[in-house]
C-alpha cells in the first residue's frame, strides 16, 4: 500500500492532467513529455534539477525530524534567510577574502544562524508553552525585514547605484561548480550527507526513537520519561540548522550576493516535500526531486509549447493534491483496516 499510493496518485494525475490539457486544446502526450521528460534530457537540465532539488531536500530532512515529534517548524523560510545572511556576512566582510577557510566558516555561520533563529521559538515553546507554528512563522517575517534592512542599508553594494543588493561574494566564498558550463556545485554533497544523517537519526538512533515516541504518543513519551522539551529543541534546531545551511549554500551558489529576495519559497516548499516524502529520508529525496521537476517542467512547457504559467501551476497543484490526498487515505487505512486483517491472521495462526 505504501508504494501503491504514490503510483496511484501519479496515474490519477496523468489521467486528470491529460483531460485538463486536452480540454484546453493541448495535445496531452507532448505536453506531459515536455513537462516531465524534456527538462531532464540535457546535462544542463539535470544540473538545474539537482540544483533546485538540493535545498528542498536538505531543508525537508531537517524539518521532518521535528515534524515526526509533532514540532511544527513552518519558519524554515526565515531560518534559510538568516543562514544566507550570516554566511554572506562572513563572505563579504572576512578580513581575508581569499582564505581557504572562508567557505567552511560561512557554512558554520549559516548553520549557527539558522539554529539561532529556530532557538527562539524553541525557547518560547519549552519555557512558555507558546505555539511554535505561530512563532516560527512570525520569525520569518522578521528575517525578511532584517534582510531588507541590510541590503537597503549597511550592506548595500557601494558600487551598485544604491540598488538594494550587496556586492558579489569573492570567489573563495563560492562553492565550486563541477563544470563551469553548469550551475550544479559541490554543495550537493552537503545534502547527500544530510540525507544519510537524517536516515541514521530517525531510523537508528535512540534520540530519533524518542522523538518518534513524542510525536506518535506524547503521553507515552512522558510515561517513559523522555523530555518533551528535548524533542522541541532537537526538532526545531535540526530544521533551523538544515535551513540555515541551505541558505548558505544558496548564497554561496546560485545567488552569489544578497538581495531583498534570497529564497524562492524553499522554506515553505520544503514542508510539502517533507510530507510528500512521508517524513522519511528516502521519500524526501524523491519528493524533492519531484518538486524540483515540477518547477522545471512548468517552465519547460512555457518554453516549448507556450503554455501560460497559470496552467502549469494548476497542473502542479493537481499532482500535489493527489499525492497528499493519497497519503491521507492511506493513513486512514492503516488506522481502520489494519486491526481486522491482523486479527484474522491471529485466528488462523491459532
Amino acid at each position: 500500500m505504501r508504494i501503491a499510493a504514490p503510483v496511484l496518485a501519479s496515474v490519477l494525475t496523468l489521467i486528470v492532467g491529460s483531460i485538463f490539457f486536452a480540454s484546453l486544446g493541448h495535445d496531452p502526450l507532448p505536453t506531459l513529455y515536455a513537462f516531465f521528460v524534456e527538462p531532464l534530457s540535457s546535462m544542463n537540465g539535470l544540473s538545474e534539477w539537482l540544483l533546485k532539488a538540493s535545498p528542498l531536500i536538505l531543508i525537508a530532512c531537517g524539518l521532518a525530524i521535528g515534524f515526526r515529534a509533532n514540532v511544527w517548524n513552518i519558519g524554515a523560510e526565515g531560518q534559510f534567510i538568516m543562514g544566507a545572511v550570516a554566511a554572506s556576512g562572513v563572505g563579504l566582510f572576512w578580513s581575508d577574502p581569499d582564505s581557504a577557510l572562508l567557505l567552511p566558516l560561512m557554512f558554520l555561520a549559516g548553520m549557527a544562524a539558522g539554529m539561532a533563529w529556530a532557538a527562539i521559538p524553541a525557547f518560547l515553546r519549552s519555557r512558555m508553552n507558546t505555539n511554535e507554528i505561530l512563532v516560527t512563522l512570525m520569525m520569518t517575517y522578521i528575517a525578511t525585514l532584517f534582510l531588507s534592512y541590510l541590503v537597503h542599508g549597511p550592506w548595500r553594494d557601494p558600487a551598485g547605484f544604491n540598488y538594494p543588493q550587496t556586492a558579489l561574494l569573492p570567489a573563495a566564498a563560492m562553492f565550486q561548480s563541477f563544470d563551469p558550463a553548469y550551475r550544479l556545485n559541490s554543495s550537493i554533497f552537503i545534502t547527500v550527507v544530510a540525507v544519510f544523517l537524517m536516515w541514521l537519526f530517525t531510523d537508528r538512533s535512540f534520540l530519533g526513537y524518542k522523538m518518534s515516541v513524542s510525536g506518535a504518543a506524547p503521553l507515552a513519551a512522558r510515561y517513559a520519561g523522555f523530555r518533551e522539551s528535548a524533542a522541541v529543541w532537537i526538532g526545531l534546531l535540526a530544521g533551523g540548522a538544515a535551513a540555515g545551511i541551505a541558505g548558505m549554500a544558496e548564497a554561496a551558489g546560485p545567488l552569489g550576493q544578497l538581495s531583498p529576495q534570497v529564497s524562492p519559497g524553499y522554506g515553505f516548499a520544503a514542508i510539502i516535500v517533507a510530507f510528500i516524502g512521508r517524513l522519511n529520508a528516502f521519500g524526501i529525496v524523491l519528493g524533492g526531486l519531484l518538486m524540483s521537476l515540477l518547477f522545471l517542467g512548468g517552465e519547460g512547457v512555457q518554453m516549448t509549447l507556450a503554455l501560460p504559467s497559470a496552467l502549469t501551476r494548476i497542473f502542479q497543484g493537481i499532482l500535489l493534491f493527489f499525492l497528499l490526498a493519497a497519503d491521507f487515505f492511506i493513513f486512514y487505512r492503516i488506522r481502520l483496516v489494519r486491526p481486522a486483517p491482523d486479527a484474522h491472521a491471529l485466528e488462523t495462526a491459532r
Binding site: E250, Q261, F295, E299, M303
Partner: peptide, 15 residues
C-alpha cells in the same frame, strides 16, 4: 518565446 512569472534571481538564471 515568452516565460512569465520569473522573479527570483536563481530561477531567472536558469531560464
Amino acid at each position: 518565446t515568452v516565460i512569465d512569472n520569473i522573479f527570483m534571481p536563481q530561477d531567472a538564471e536558469r531560464v
